[in-house]
Nucleic acid binder design. Sequence first.
RNA 1: GCAGAGGUAGCGAAGCGGUCAAACGUGUAAGGCUAAGGACCUUAUGGCUCAGGCCUUCGAGGGUUCAAAUCCCUCCCUCUGCACCA
Length: 911
Amino acid sequence: MVDYDFKKIEEKWQEEWRKERLFEPEVDTAQKKIFISVPIPYPSGQLHLGHMYTWGRADVYARFMRMRGYNVLFPQAFHFTGGPIMGLRDLVKRGDQKTLDRLRAQGVSEEDIKKFGEDAKYICQYFSKKAMDDLTSAGMSIDWRRRFFTTQLNPYYSKFIEWQFRKLKDLGVVYKGTHPVVWCPNEKTPIGDHDRSEGEGESPVRYTIIKFTIGNVILPAATLRPETVYGATNLWINLKGEYLKLDVNGEEWIVVKSAKEKLESQLKNVKDLGYFDVSEILNKTVRNPVTNEEIPVFSADFVDMKMGTGVVMSVPMHAPFDLDALDRLVQENLSSIKPIRVVNVAGEDNLVEASIKKFGKTKEGLEKATRFVYKEELNKGVMAENCGDISGLRVAEGREKIEGVLKEINANDSIYEITGRVVCRCGYEGIVKVVENQWFLKYSDLSWKELGRKMIERMNIYPEELKTQFLAVIDWLDDKAATRNGGLGTPLPWDESQVVEPLSDSTIYMAYYTIAHLIENIPIKDINDQLFEHVFFGKETNDRKHEKIIKRMRNEFEYWYPLDMRITAKEHITNHLPFFIMNHAILFPESKWPRAIAVNGWLTINMEKLSKSKHAALTIEKHVREYGADRLRLVVGAGEKIDDANWSTDNINGLDQRIGFLMQTAEMLGTFGDEIKMIDEYLKSALNNIIQKTTENYESLNLRTGLFYALYESITSIKLYLDLGGRNKENVRWAIETVTKLIHPAFPYITEEIYSRLGHKGLIEKEDWPAVDKEAVSEAVESEIAILEKTTGDIRKIIAMLRKKGNKPKEIILTIADKNAFEVYNKIADIAAEIKDPNKIRERLGIKGALVESLTSKVNRLPNRTLYAEEEYRVFSESKEWLEKTFGCKVEIKKGGDDKATPGKPAIKII
RNA sequence: GCAGAGGUAGCGAAGCGGUCAAACGUGUAAGGCUAAGGACCUUAUGGCUCAGGCCUUCGAGGGUUCAAAUCCCUCCCUCUGCACCA
């Protein structure tokens, strides 16, 4: 590592930035603005390297844009909404050992831990303060004046949320409904994924109930494949099970005992009418409500007492379990039923028979067979001609349509099951509950989706490939439950039993940043919808008391909005980002729609995912202390696009080397002169190319590539320049300053330091971003340098061979090709620019000879640029000294006279 | 299942019709520098050659083209998300 006192340097420049108020931009209509934001973190722990990656990317962009002359706003708030912090408080209160260990590992004092157990708000405050300090020390150029937090703990923000939801309701996109959730009957709350000790990822699945009737009594068969009702040959019940007769919404249902609780928690009005002996209906017939046929009721062991209603529709032609059970009855001469085909799969004669053969008749085998048949028929199946209204439809379509058919004849209902066993952390098994009084945002609305799509089409999305995915997500979007009945948050203004849930109260909060530092000058009692309507939409206000401050708020919003760049990680693609898009689309006019989104992958450490247990060891605080902020900021170059980025401290060495090189070269400047050689043209050309590439890549948040040019390619070019004998003071100085500027957004502290050591008084961040001098870019010069390098490589190869033979080179003679060879070469290059076929090129050229033959013989080695004889001579003769030094022998450069020389490839003769 | 992304040398990762045996980083090996180690510099790192050459490679198999890692088709495999949860 290069030795420098990073702590001192960091403190020094932080102070300078603070003095200059560099990160506290004011409205200035004469200056172009850019508004950047990163998600609002949830302060349930200390920020770690994963955060560093996302914030680092945002900060590089912010500093880059500042240098490009933009007035940059980069604010940061904190999100207190939700349940987990309260959960953390309870765990601390309970003295949960794991939790306490984790907090202690993060350096939380015993006194603070005690307070955590008493007050969730204190946890929020503690960690948000920490986060602020960590981000600041890591060099984030954040305007902290505008920080705020959410929930009713901040009544101003709550007013903003209330306004927003009233407005959404007025727009007709909020409605009250019901929603199935996995529910803990003990704690009486939904069990989210992280609240489960078993069953992560399991979710409610809806079974269709088809009502078969026997007189007035209903046998409700639960099924995932209602479209096969045309092929039902019988019903299955299980004589070993206990059944009940229930009054369900005024109808008499026969169901297995376990279904009672489910139906109750799924909003059915249930009265228990007592035990029902199912042997009473065994072998009796029931009426299929769709076909009106009478079919028998049989018993089968495979009917699961815990699943659904305990009544199963038998479709032996399309269900392995049904066929297997029926076969047994037929063998015992208890039935003579024949399966009925209702789905055709091209090229398949009897899918169920085939699959049973394949997977076997064990329970596992039949389960596999069932999944297989389900999949095949769903994907490839077509409903047969005996299926009434759904005949000829694809299975998926038929399944959708049959629901309507059943509904019309009042023969359907539904029951939810969980896709797998879920156990709550409290130890109780989860069930599906249909919760009432849920308020939904109607993201399924087609005209709303149209707005969302329109916004996406107009937005810059980085990486670009994600645009199609965003459009797909909008298509897939369904109504979103926007409230819940617990946790921290803002109560829904018209139904205070519900709290706006976290993802729904953080869709347009970026607008709040524009006024967050001003709004609290107005007493809370005077904050109303009219104020927000005025500030955001310029509608009339009759508040004269706060005229001045309101006017400022209005100006701030008008100036800063829309948001120019939203930077976030990929886990938000299917939740936060689409909501952010949709809510902006419906609430704001097009001129205020966000302009760009940049998405990044996750950070891995030495190729391993950052697991929760590792967070404590990977805090930003710890790493800044250990390595310094600049070195830590190297993490922004760890990845690109949505690929996962890998961080390893190995890379620090590479950074240090290059920083050291810049500093050393800066110190050597005094020994340089003012001679200008071809290599100086090369330096100018190469660096201008690098400026261009760096700028383009920073613009689209491709920071790994940007840094590759700014930090690696640039220094490689400067080294090559010095190697080849370049010693022009002005040019080297310019090169060092340019590179320092190019890498400044990523490594702000050390670059400020280098810049001041170069004798500059002002801040580098206030300097202009290096401009590309197109005049200086010369393809010819760069190709000649490449030719020089290639030739050097060839010489080396030949010398190595000679050495093997025991020969030592005494002299190297390089001969540049004849002028007329260059003419031929360039003619071919010209033709090859449009015609690519070697045969046709030769035809068109009309010249023959060994040179033409060799230049056009290999299709992938056609000349593709113009070369100049004088330039080629110059580059070699100016490098003569260097070549002699490199190879330790005499070198002679000749012009013409050797047939072996071709343009771009001088003849090498070694004596 | 649905949706999206992707499979390139030991590893990571560029390239997205012709300057591709394939940038760059890292690893490995040899040499230099060092008292030594680290750091640094040079070179090598698909195979065969041994005067700058040739041959075979970019998940598998077909196809288009004078020319394919790059375009088209089929197949195999991997990753991510699927919601009321931050």
